[in-house]
Simulated scan of single mutants.
Amino acid sequence: MNGTNVSTEDNHGPERYEIRLKGHLDARWADRFEGLSFTYNNDGTTILNGPVVDQAALHGMLRRVRDIGMPLISVNQVDSKVSTGPDMNTD
């Protein structure tokens, strides 16, 4: 085994993620998910969408979701060039 570590990741900046939650996340939690936009869907779900710096930051966000008790439906990495529809940002 040699001592060279080769990364398979491109170091081109933060990746974009879409985190879907069951229920509508109250706007008072917006500061815990800084940098992500909130979209409230008619099906009773909330989508958090935005850039996440790295895997550690993603895991931190998922811990916050767990801590506030929101059921997690899905986590998807999305193409930053693709829009998920109208944004209802809580700002």
Score class of each variant (00 low, 15 high):
residue 73 I to M: 02
residue 78 V to R: 15
residue 65 V to L: 08
residue 76 N to D: 15
residue 61 M to S: 05
residue 65 V to S: 02
residue 80 S to R: 15
residue 89 N to F: 09
residue 82 V to M: 14
residue 85 G to V: 07
residue 70 M to K: 12
residue 64 R to M: 04
residue 76 N to T: 10
residue 82 V to F: 11
residue 86 P to D: 12
residue 66 R to S: 14
residue 81 K to C: 02
residue 79 D to K: 02
residue 74 S to C: 02
residue 66 R to D: 14
residue 61 M to L: 15
residue 69 G to N: 06
residue 64 R to I: 03
residue 64 R to V: 05
residue 77 Q to D: 02
residue 61 M to C: 05
residue 83 S to H: 06
residue 65 V to P: 02
residue 63 R to Q: 14
residue 75 V to I: 04
residue 65 V to K: 05
residue 71 P to S: 03
residue 65 V to G: 04
residue 59 H to V: 14
residue 82 V to Q: 15
residue 74 S to N: 13
residue 62 L to Q: 04
residue 70 M to A: 15
residue 63 R to V: 13
residue 89 N to V: 10
residue 79 D to W: 08
residue 64 R to T: 14
residue 74 S to M: 02
residue 66 R to Y: 12
residue 59 H to A: 14
residue 61 M to R: 08
residue 76 N to I: 00
residue 75 V to Q: 09
residue 81 K to L: 15
residue 73 I to V: 10
residue 75 V to A: 03
residue 87 D to A: 04
residue 81 K to N: 07
residue 62 L to R: 00
residue 85 G to H: 05
residue 77 Q to L: 00
residue 62 L to E: 05
residue 82 V to H: 13
residue 67 D to A: 12
residue 69 G to Y: 07
residue 77 Q to I: 01
residue 67 D to G: 09
residue 59 H to Q: 13
residue 64 R to D: 10
residue 69 G to C: 01
residue 68 I to L: 11
residue 89 N to W: 04
residue 73 I to T: 06
residue 66 R to H: 13
residue 71 P to K: 11
residue 79 D to T: 04
residue 84 T to V: 10
residue 82 V to G: 01
residue 80 S to C: 01
residue 71 P to V: 02
residue 60 G to C: 01
residue 72 L to N: 07
residue 88 M to Y: 10
residue 73 I to K: 04
residue 69 G to I: 00
residue 89 N to A: 13
residue 73 I to N: 03
residue 76 N to E: 15
residue 72 L to T: 08
residue 73 I to H: 02
residue 74 S to I: 00
residue 83 S to R: 11
residue 78 V to S: 07
residue 78 V to H: 09
residue 62 L to F: 08
residue 63 R to M: 14
residue 70 M to W: 12
residue 71 P to Y: 12
residue 78 V to C: 05
residue 85 G to R: 03
residue 73 I to C: 09
residue 68 I to P: 00
residue 79 D to P: 01
residue 68 I to M: 11
residue 60 G to N: 11
residue 82 V to I: 15
residue 84 T to E: 10
residue 67 D to S: 14
residue 85 G to L: 03
residue 75 V to P: 05
residue 81 K to M: 09
residue 87 D to Y: 05
residue 66 R to V: 06
residue 64 R to E: 11
residue 85 G to K: 06
residue 73 I to E: 06
residue 77 Q to T: 07
residue 63 R to I: 12
residue 83 S to F: 01
residue 86 P to A: 07
residue 64 R to C: 00
residue 79 D to F: 07
